[in-house]
Structures are given as structure tokens and as C-alpha cells.
Design a protein around this nucleic acid. Structure first.
Lengths: 346, 346
DNA sequence: GTGAAAGCGCTAACAC
DNA sequence: GTGTTAGCGCTTTCAC
């Protein structure tokens, strides 16, 4: 910019005014303005975004944080829809997206308050004290893409899907097929996440309502990511005729293990998952799953964030919960007759 | 930082040295250092990344540019593998990733020289004069993920797959199945991209080599994204028994249109695509496709970029071309024996 | 209308 | 060892 000013024979200030000044204060003679413009073009002047951000206190970038940042491809498409939703809102408004490497769980504040972004969409924000504290101290707004943890203070807006309702719908689907004992399968890594827990809670509540037996010891399992424990579980001849996996990727593991054990799905065992995406269609058999409208959720969260960036965090909006639906595919079917009690017809 | 220094009763410079100074120059008494550390912790001090970047002349962020930024989900998984490859290299080294909104085709320099990234991975960099010029002027290294345009100067390192070889392999696969006339189907939007053109070139060369007839007017079509023109093409009872689509997403469109027209794949018509991903497995029938190792390519490109960032652009490496392979799936099969007389259709 | 000057938060050379 | 200082590139107030 110094060069541009020199080239045009004016002060740096004048150049700045002409090149970036907002309407009212331009106050520069037309000729000078003209020559500044040409000089800038000739010199291929590009304003330094860093300096500009520093001075202006806004960066034009939004951060996206999702832990769990292994390979996205090959796994569930959840993150891809998330990404699409965020980007789809951000880019038309000229924002950039910055994706962060894994956050230090002990000082998560760093990413959010180092001044490099105007706000953050945080997917599955952990609910440890460190994160709660970080959220409070954060100088920029945060939208979390998960359910609000119980009693968490009001520093963050939560956008989530109705995990409880989604689980209920699936239990209703399964009972309507005649299943009378359903296993809820969780994944060790994610056992304590808000999403996993609320899906389990929804499952439990629905079991009670639908008069399906529920004993935590027998009807909930926590397996490793590839469900390697499933064969051993099968050996005990459990009474269950359906397995409800906490998410789609894990549902795929369950499917794979069952097939490896020679169990026919859905004839002998029905399998269902959570997070219905293109991925569920790619499995054999295709996987029945609860659909959470993640793309819409991500879009909405991003819009909310941009709003809070524009109007200040005081404009904080109430949490939003999106309803879930069930996509029925091949992996669920009528409960096998032999296992059904006399009361069931058909 | 001012606050930290004040709290610890030392100068700002001392604080800076202790908190970020590199080994040799620390020269601060242990007690002061100690009190600075505690003060920083107490105040939840987080260094301002912007100021730091500005001063140091490096940002710790790498840019990723891919035009064509519609919805990724639902389309080919090419971009997801790309993303994974880039992120997989970047994050372990502590780099951030900044994804840019669409680049102004008339002044593409902006994104690359506004100081906000240390380097750029540019997927399918257009080869207009503007972009060539921008690449030359760019203050940061650029790695392009596509073939080198003919005679382009040496400002950019190109990482690409062997589009020509990939096309050849597919033609060989099809001829080995007895196909004697193959249609190459391109997509209007992408008709002029280097990738599309080199795939076509490879197709043409292979046709000659394999003695498959090739007339540009009859054996190459340019259709809209959803291949809506296919039914009309079918009506003319073309002699082709196989269609080779320029990419996977377009291959899916072709498949869909054929199904809608009641043409059985692969019994009556074989279909093949380019870019073999999980997506090809999700189709019915699954799509035979050329596999370009995009994840590896992206990883490699990213490593190259980080190297050039670290050692200067002079360390520029030669272009790299990755070989392709063919993933045979359900959509290709033996050529129908009596195609001409027994053609089904309407 | 115009430009000198302060300062965003940080680092490094240099003088004490 | 320690603090003072200049300056990264930009914007904006304010005196001229």
C-alpha cells in the first residue's frame, strides 16, 4: 500500500481511504482517487488480510471444530453433510472457513480466542469443565451442534436433533414389526458423549412406554468400534431379535459382524442405526436408520452464528431442536416367528 | 500480554521472551520466568494469532481451493478423499486449513497473496492467463492438483493422476469384454477442464491402439449434468455397447437415465466412469470406474507444499503423476451378442 | 481535502 | 538479565 501511495504521489492515508474507506469519509479529490486506483491495479495491490483483521477486529473467517477427525471418507457421511451445511451458508456471505486440528482438551480456549476467527461452529462440544469455562470466556460466539448438557450455563447456543424422539421412533418401528426385546449397542469411544447418552435415554423411555423389557445390564452393550465383541454376545443365545446401534458407522460394524457369524439380516436379526445418509444405502443389506437433518441443522447453526457475529452475542437465540424421522431400509424386518411369544399374531 | 506483564511486574518484552522465545535468547531470571508463567495461566492468556502471524510472516495455515463448490454430499466422493488427504497431513504438523469461497476468476491473486495462508493446494486450477499470472506473482507456494497445462511456466508444482493411462486401461477392459464401439460422455460444465480433456485424449489414443472406431462426431457426446440428452441419443439406435463417462458423478447420471429408459445394465449396455470411490459402490448396479489415488495424491501434494513452505519455493520439486487402476464392478459386462438386431428400447 | 500520527498485539534488535 | 524501541500493514482520528 505504501508503494501504491508513492506511485500515485499521495499519502498512505489517502490510498487507504480510496481503496477501502466507507462511503461518508472519502473526502479525496476525484483525480487523486483515480490515480490511486490505477496505481493499485498496476501494482497488483492486494490488501493484507492480517493487518486488516487486526485493525478492524474482525477476520471474515468462521471456525469449524470437530474432534474425531480421522478419515472422513469411508466412514459415515455425517461430517460431509455437516461440512456442506456450514459451507453452503458461509461462502455466499463471503466468509472463509477455517478448520482446526484437534483441540487441546485441557485448554480449549486457544482456538476460540486467538483472534483468528469471528465465531465457531463446534460439533459435539465436550462438556467437561474446561470446555464450559472456555465457552464462557470466549470472546467470539460459539454455536454447538449437539444437545445442551444438563444445567449448562447460557454462554452457547445449542442446535441439536431430537435424539430422544428419534430413538423412540425407531423403537416404535421395531415393536410394530413384532420385536419384543431390543439391544442397544454403543461404541466405547463415544460412550459418554451427549448424543450417545440421549439416544440411550430415548431408547429406555420408549422401551418403557412400549412395554419392551429393559434391563441396563442385559439390554445395553458397549463394544469396541468394530463390534468385535458381538460373536461372544451371540454365543450366549440372547433373546433379542433386533439391535439398535447408536450411529450409522457402528451399525455397519454390527452388520458386518452378524454376517461374519452367519446370522441373516433381517430374517434372524434386525439391525437399525442412527444417522441416515447415503452411506446406509451403500451397505448390504441397506441399513434402516434414524435420520437427523444434519445438513439443515448445520445450515441453521451457521446462520445463527453469522447473526451473532453481526449483532453481538447479546442477540443470542434460544436453542433449537430439529425433529428426526426414520428411514426404513432392508436391515429391519418382522421378528422371527420362533422367538415371538404367543400373544403376537401374523 | 500487556496484562500478563503487568501482573508479573515485568516488561512486555520479558513476557514475550518467556512465553514464546526460542531457546537461545531467553535470558530471563528463573523467578521472573516463573511468575510470568503463572500470571499467563491465571489470566488465561492466549496469544493473538493475527499479531503473531503478522510479525513472524507466517500464519500456520494452508489454503485449499476448489472451485465447483456446490454440495459435496450426494455427489462424487472425490472431494472428500481430497479433503481427507490434505487434512491428514496438515493437522499432525499443527497447520490449520482454510477453505476459501469461490475465487474471483478475474483476480485470483487475492486469495493467495493476502497474507492469510502460507501456501495453497489448488484443486483443478484453471489455466487462464489470469491464473498463470497469479501463480507467478504469488508470494506463497502453490501446488496444483491437476495435470500441467501445456507449456505452462514453472511457478507451480503439479500433482496429477495419469488420466491418459487410466482411460486406456478402461478401454482395454471394455474391449476385452468384447465391446467394439464405445461412447465417451462428457459433461457440459466441465467440458474444457484439463482433466476432462486428457481423459478424452487417452480414450481416443486407446481406441486407435485397440482398433476401436473413433469418430469425434459420433463417439463423443457432451451432455448436461443429468445426462438428460441420453434418451434422445438412444432413439437413434446408436451402435455403441458401452458408455464411458468422464467422471463418477456423471456416470451415475448415465446409469440413472439408462434405467429410466428400461435399458438393462450391463446386459444391454455397459457403463464405466472415472474416479472410483465408495460412491460407485452405493449405486445400483455398482459402477466400474478408473481409480485415481486421490487421497494419496492429496497427501503427497500437501507434503510437497509443507516442504516448500519450510525450505522456500526454490526447493520446488518436479511434477508427479500417479498411475491409475481400474475397479471392475457390476456395471460392465460382456458386450451383447446381437446388439443391432436384438436391441431393446423404445 | 489532506497527511501526520497513534495504535491493533506481537517480536527482535539493541542499548543499558 | 532487563527494558526500551521500532515496526509488521493497515485504519481512523484529528489537526491543518
Amino acid at each position: 500500500m505504501k508503494d501504491v501511495a508513492a506511485e500515485a504521489g499521495v499519502s498512505i492515508a489517502a490510498a487507504s481511504k480510496v481503496l477501502h474507506g466507507r462511503g461518508s469519509n472519502i473526502r479525496v479529490s476525484p483525480e487523486k482517487a483515480e490515480s490511486i486506483q490505477t496505481a493499485a491495479r498496476d501494482l497488483n495491490y492486494v490488501p493484507n488480510a492480517l493487518a486488516q483483521s487486526m485493525r478492524l477486529g474482525r477476520t471474515g473467517a468462521v471456525g469449524l471444530v470437530f474432534e474425531n477427525f480421522g478419515r472422513i471418507s469411508g466412514g459415515p457421511l455425517f461430517y460431509i453433510h455437516l461440512f456442506d451445511g456450514v459451507v453452503g451458508e458461509l461462502f455466499p456471505k463471503g466468509y472463509r472457513l477455517t478448520v482446526f486440528p484437534e483441540v487441546d482438551p485441557l485448554s480449549p480456549l486457544g482456538i476460540v480466542s486467538d483472534g483468528s476467527v469471528d465465531g465457531v461452529v463446534w460439533c459435539k462440544m465436550p462438556e467437561t469443565p474446561e470446555f464450559t469455562e472456555a465457552a464462557k470466556q470466549s470472546p467470539v460466539p460459539i454455536i454447538a451442534l449437539n444437545s445442551r448438557p444438563p444445567e449448562s450455563p447460557d454462554h452457547v447456543t445449542y442446535v441439536s436433533c431430537d435424539n430422544l424422539g428419534g430413538s423412540s421412533l425407531m423403537v416404535e418401528h421395531l415393536t410394530s414389526l413384532g420385536h419384543e426385546r431390543i439391544l442397544f449397542a454403543m461404541e466405547k469411544r463415544e460412550e459418554r458423549t451427549p448424543d450417545a447418552l440421549s439416544r440411550l435415554a430415548g431408547f429406555q423411555a420408549a422401551c418403557h412406554r412400549m412395554r419392551v423389557p429393559f434391563e441396563p445390564d442385559r439390554d445395553v452393550v458397549v463394544w469396541s468400534q468394530d463390534a468385535a465383541e458381538l460373536p461372544f454376545w451371540l454365543k450366549e443365545r440372547p433373546p433379542h431379535t433386533a439391535i439398535f446401534a447408536w450411529n450409522e458407522g457402528f451399525g455397519a460394524s454390527v452388520l458386518r459382524q452378524l454376517l461374519a457369524c452367519g446370522v441373516r439380516v433381517p430374517d434372524e436379526m434386525s439391525v437399525a442405526g442412527f444417522d441416515s445418509t447415503q452411506f446406509c444405502d451403500a451397505l448390504t443389506p441397506t441399513l434402516t436408520a434414524v435420520r437427523q437433518p444434519i445438513l439443515e441443522m448445520a445450515s441453521y447453526a451457521t446462520r445463527l452464528l453469522m447473526e451473532q457475529i453481526a449483532f453481538g452475542r447479546d442477540s443470542r437465540s434460544p436453542d433449537v431442536i430439529f425433529p428426526c424421522t426414520v428411514d426404513v431400509r432392508q436391515s429391519t424386518g418382522p421378528a422371527p416367528l420362533k422367538r415371538r411369544s404367543a400373544s403376537a399374531g401374523s
